[in-house]
Simulated assay, not measured.
Amino acid sequence: MAHDEVPGWQDEMLAEYRRVAAALDPPPPDLAAAAKAAFAARDLDAEIALLIADSRTEAGAALYEPVRAEPDLVSGRWLLSFDGGGIQAEIEVEAVDGHLRLLGLLSGASAEDCYLETAGAHHRVDVDDLGRFIVEHIAPGPIRLRCRSTEGIRVTTAWVTV
């Protein structure tokens, strides 16, 4: 009897493939939470500010000119730059006691209605009159910044893993 003559053989085969794949190469534990957060936090009308530099990469490190000190990857400190939708965001990420602290500077963005989104949560970001902000006690993982430009346009940075 051929396979196509046995009802449901395709369903059984797919179920077996799923079982084997789940046993040999399971998805990362935080994948489902990150996917749900990304879907729930989508804003189809927002402009995207793209990651234009990351000091953890060789190309990104060449773009940064040190002001206070070199980014120190050994101690867990690096720089991220985003641009788009009329805003620029510079963020210094620093590992502190198993959590992350973000020091940032926004240009072209309103000081109100600014949030940092992580997988499963969002945190209000208090931006001062000069565009500076600090967000502490962030768990490592995917993040993005959501704010409004000074023209009132909603802008979201690309997701980046910190």
Score class of each variant (00 low, 15 high):
A33I: 09
E70F: 15
E12K: 11
D54S: 07
C114T: 14
R124S: 10
S110F: 09
E16S: 05
E47H: 15
E70Q: 10
W78K: 02
G76E: 11
L73P: 00
R132I: 05
R144N: 04
A61F: 11
S149D: 03
A23K: 12
G98V: 10
D126S: 07
L73C: 01
R144L: 06
V135M: 04
E58K: 14
L100W: 01
L79I: 12
I52N: 02
Q88S: 12
F39A: 11
P26A: 00
T156N: 10
R68E: 05
I138P: 00
I52G: 02
Y17W: 09
I87F: 08
L31M: 11
T150H: 13
R144T: 04
T161G: 09
G131V: 11
G108W: 06
G152C: 06
E94P: 00
D113I: 03
A62I: 03
A23S: 10
A46D: 00
G8R: 15
R19V: 03
L73M: 08
A139G: 03
I134E: 14
D25T: 13
E65C: 09
P71D: 08
P142N: 06
E90A: 14
A69M: 12
E5L: 15
L73H: 14
L24P: 04
C147R: 02
D97A: 14
L116W: 03
G60H: 14
V162I: 14
L80C: 04
Y115M: 02
S55V: 05
A111G: 13
P66C: 09
I87G: 01
V93F: 02
A46K: 02
T161D: 12
V96N: 07
T156A: 10
E58H: 12
A38W: 06
A46T: 00
A121M: 07
Y115L: 05
L130K: 14
G141N: 07
S55P: 00
L102V: 03
A41W: 06
Y115A: 02
A23P: 06
E112C: 05
L14T: 00
E65Y: 15
A46G: 02
V125C: 03
A61Q: 08
T161S: 13
I138D: 02
V160G: 02
E5S: 12
A22C: 01
E151S: 13
G8A: 14
E5C: 06
D97V: 08
S110K: 10
A37R: 07
E47A: 15
L130A: 13
P29G: 03
G76V: 09
I48N: 07
Q10C: 02
L106R: 02
C114G: 04
G8K: 14
D43H: 09
T161W: 10
D126P: 00
S55R: 11
L105G: 00
A61L: 12
V6Q: 11
M1T: 11
G120R: 12
Y64D: 01
E65D: 13
L31P: 02
H3C: 04
V6P: 01
Q88C: 07
E117K: 11
A46Q: 00
V125A: 03
G8V: 08
L103A: 06
E92H: 12
I91P: 00
R68V: 04
R42A: 12
M13Y: 15
E151Q: 13
P71R: 15
E58W: 12
D129E: 14
A62R: 13
H99I: 08
G84E: 01
A35I: 07
L51F: 07
T57Y: 14
L31Q: 14
C114Y: 04
S149V: 06
L24Q: 12
L80R: 09
E94V: 10
